[in-house]
Amino acid sequence: MKVLRKNGGTPDKFLSGEETRCWRLARRLTQPELAKWLGVSPQAVSKMEQRGVSRVVALALAAIDRGLQPMKPSPEDYEAAQQPIRKEDMDEGE
C-alpha cells in the first residue's frame, strides 16, 4: 500500500505531475523542448506530467533553472573512465 504525500503524490515522486507541468509552463517550454534538455522523448515528458517525477528529475529541472547546459561525455571522459584507479592517486586527493 502506498502512502500519499501531503500534495497528493506518492513517496517515490518528488514532484506531482501538476507541479511538473506548472514548472514547464512557467518557463515557457514546450514538451519537446524539455524532452531535449532531459534527454528523453516528448512522450516521456507527457508521462511525467501525468505521474510526477522522482528527485533525480527534479534535480535536473533545478539545474536547467540555474542555466546549466546538457552535458555529453567527451571521448576523453570515456577514456578516463576506462583507466584503473591507483591507490596512490586516491591518497593524493585526501
Rank of each mutant, 00 (worst) to 15 (best):
K47Y: 08
T20I: 06
K6N: 14
G8Y: 07
K13F: 01
V3H: 12
K36V: 02
A63N: 10
W37S: 09
A26C: 14
A60D: 05
L25M: 14
G8P: 06
A26N: 15
L34A: 05
P32K: 05
D12H: 15
L4M: 14
G52D: 06
K47A: 13
L15I: 05
P42L: 01
E33G: 02
G39K: 01
V56R: 14
I64C: 10
R24A: 06
E49Y: 01
L38S: 03
G8V: 10
A62Y: 03
G39Q: 00
L59R: 07
M48I: 01
C22M: 13
S16T: 15
G17S: 11
V56M: 04
V53K: 04
T30G: 11
N7G: 08
E49N: 02
E19Y: 05
S16A: 03
G17R: 04
I64M: 08
M48R: 05
R51D: 14
E19R: 07
A44Y: 01
W37Q: 10
A44N: 06
P42M: 00
P32C: 10
K36Q: 13
I64P: 00
L61N: 00
P42C: 02
S16K: 08
V53H: 02
Q43L: 10
L15Q: 05
A44I: 03
R21W: 02
R28A: 13
L15Y: 10
P11E: 14
A58F: 00
K2P: 15
A62Q: 11
G52E: 01
